[in-house]
Amino acid sequence: MTMTLNYAWMSALSTFRNAKFVIFTAALPVIMFLLFNGLYGDQTSSAGMSAGVYLMISMACYGAIGASLNAGARIALERQTGWNRQLRLTALSPQGYMIAKAVVSMLVALPALALVFLVGGVVGHVHLSVGSWLLTALVIWISIIPFAMLGLVIGFLGTPDSTQPISMLVYIGLSILGGLWVPLENFPAVMTTIAKVLPTYWVAENGRDAAAGVGVSATGVLVLVGWTILLGLVGMAAYRRSGRKA
């Protein structure tokens, strides 16, 4: 297990080195937050939450989810370049490899999350207690587990050429439909119904609940756990399939 976590940590470090990765997963949400916050920051959302907090949470989720998906896409690259063959000549077990990749996906989500929160607090004038900040961050972080699984699925099914567009499409599609970009109140009611079966919606909703100091909804937990199990199973199958080819 030490070996697996060690490997995950070092892989995560190498991912942070990639400038493109950092720009797309951390800088973009920060810029979008600053932009939207400048436009709507002083309004109050329908739920009584300040638009600043609402936007900060949405963009933190957006960034964390993007990083997590992107880490998965990197698997496809490692598979194609033959690095995975080299990895198979180590004591790292296939299970250890899967766990390491999931851990990497979770780890690389942290900087985006932290950065958007930092900008929210410093520039965006979002005021929360220390406990609320930490709790909100933790809740969002745990809630993105299904996206770590989704990253694995994409990484094990796709090729380096196909993963980029696929994960981008999935990322932006789920983000918009889940209300991360524009609050769902601005869409027809049917959109809200759709959003409520999507993990993106519940990641942000859980974050908002945590920031507001109320418990997360059981439906949300159920939806996220459901996606995690489903995508986890597909990911395992995809891994076995890719292992045979490698």
Partner: peptide, 13 residues
């Protein structure tokens, strides 16, 4: 230990 043919190295390290 093995040196594989054209096995790529992990980038960004």
């Amino acid at each position: 230990g093995a040196m594989l043919q054209s096995g790529a190295l992990l980038p960004d390290l």
